[in-house]
Amino acid sequence: MVLIKEVVIGSNELTITHLQFADDTILFCEAKWLEVVTIKRILRCFEILSGLKINYHKSVIAGIGVKEVMLQSFASRLNCAHQRLPFKYLGVPLGANPGVVIDFYNRRGGIQVWNLEFRRPLLAWEEEEVCRLHSFLINASEMRATKPDVWKWKADPSGVVSVASVYKRYEFFLGSVRKMAVVVWNNCAPPKVKFFGWLAWQGNVKTSSFLQRIGILDASAIVGCVFCENEVESVNHILLFCPFVWLLWSHIMKWWVSQWAMPNTMEGLL
């Protein structure tokens, strides 16, 4: 019995039930109550098993050829917003005609020129990435307008991306998995605690200084520690050097009947 019917696209009749990127997910189903309720139950089971919570207020249900009344009913059942195509997912318009690569390309006197336009001002780190992209495109092979656009994963002879090929490429450039990664992920802690430990180890906890560095907070925003208000709220300060946190660590070490020397970084602590 098929509870959720997949989407079939393309001449090869590729079937898709979901798409994922980082912590964003798109789920596909028919506009039927049974399938919508099944998705709701699956998401609830995920919450119970993982200990994580799904923010339905940031979720959206969109219909193709679905009556507005039914779409509103589905949204009410899922406790989320509803809208129609086209809409944006990760900044990319869905349901609209995005064009093809050749639309952004032309030749001028034997030189390849790429016309890349953005809908908003770029952040500093995004400008650096665009410069890298331009350098890559200038040195890329010449475009052939008569050939269709094709995705190809060069890390695997088959040209098809897979988790195994991505992992092998990661190991080739960055080396094998560090022992610390095993310590962070292979333990009995809840998944969200493991994830936080991984963020702390990588220095990517969303502190005020981190959010200011990536452009989420303005340069004039207050980025002081929420506990002591004396230092900038960085990963090492908020988890190690803050007097309030240091006192907490001291109580823990006293409880464990242990003595320790304060490490300089979170990696040293882990």
Rank of each mutant, 00 (worst) to 15 (best):
L269S: 02
G197Q: 03
V36G: 05
I39C: 07
Y56H: 11
C188I: 04
L123Y: 11
I222F: 14
P86I: 13
L52S: 03
N115D: 13
V101N: 05
A219H: 14
F21M: 12
A75R: 09
N264R: 07
L19V: 14
V101T: 07
K53R: 13
K168T: 05
I214T: 02
E231I: 01
A145T: 05
F28H: 12
R44Y: 08
K152L: 01
E35I: 14
Q212S: 05
I9G: 08
F210L: 06
R108D: 10
L269E: 03
F104N: 10
A96D: 09
A181C: 04
I26N: 15
V205I: 00
G175A: 03
E30W: 04
I214K: 04
V8M: 11
Q20S: 15
V182Y: 02
A62K: 06
H57C: 07
K168N: 08
L49M: 10
R108M: 09
H237G: 00
S158F: 03
V205A: 00
S73Q: 06
N186P: 02
D156E: 04
W246S: 03
F104E: 07
L43R: 04
E35S: 15
V232Y: 00
T265R: 01
L248E: 11
T38C: 15
E30L: 11
V245Q: 07
I42T: 09
L3I: 10
G99T: 05
H18T: 09
I39P: 07
K53P: 05
C131D: 05
T146L: 03
L211P: 04
G10K: 05
K192R: 00
I214Q: 03
V226Q: 14
A221K: 13
L133G: 07
A124R: 10
L27Q: 10
S165Y: 02
I39M: 14
S135H: 09
D149K: 05
L94I: 13
M253G: 06
F173E: 11
E233M: 00
K5D: 11
G99L: 04
D24W: 15
E231W: 01
T146M: 01
L27N: 11
M262D: 01
P93S: 12
V130E: 00
A164K: 08
M266K: 01
Y170L: 12
V92E: 04
I4T: 12
K179S: 10
H251A: 13
V69A: 00
F46S: 03
G95N: 07
I111S: 14
R178W: 02
L137C: 07
P121V: 11
W198G: 02
L247T: 12
I26C: 15
S258D: 09
E229D: 13
E47S: 06
L247A: 13
L49H: 06
K152E: 01
L3H: 12
E267A: 01
V69Y: 00
L52A: 03
S220T: 15
I39E: 08
F241Q: 00
I39N: 08
L85R: 08
L269G: 02
G197C: 06
I48E: 11
E126Q: 08
A189F: 02
V113N: 15
H57D: 12
V8A: 10
T15L: 10
I111F: 13
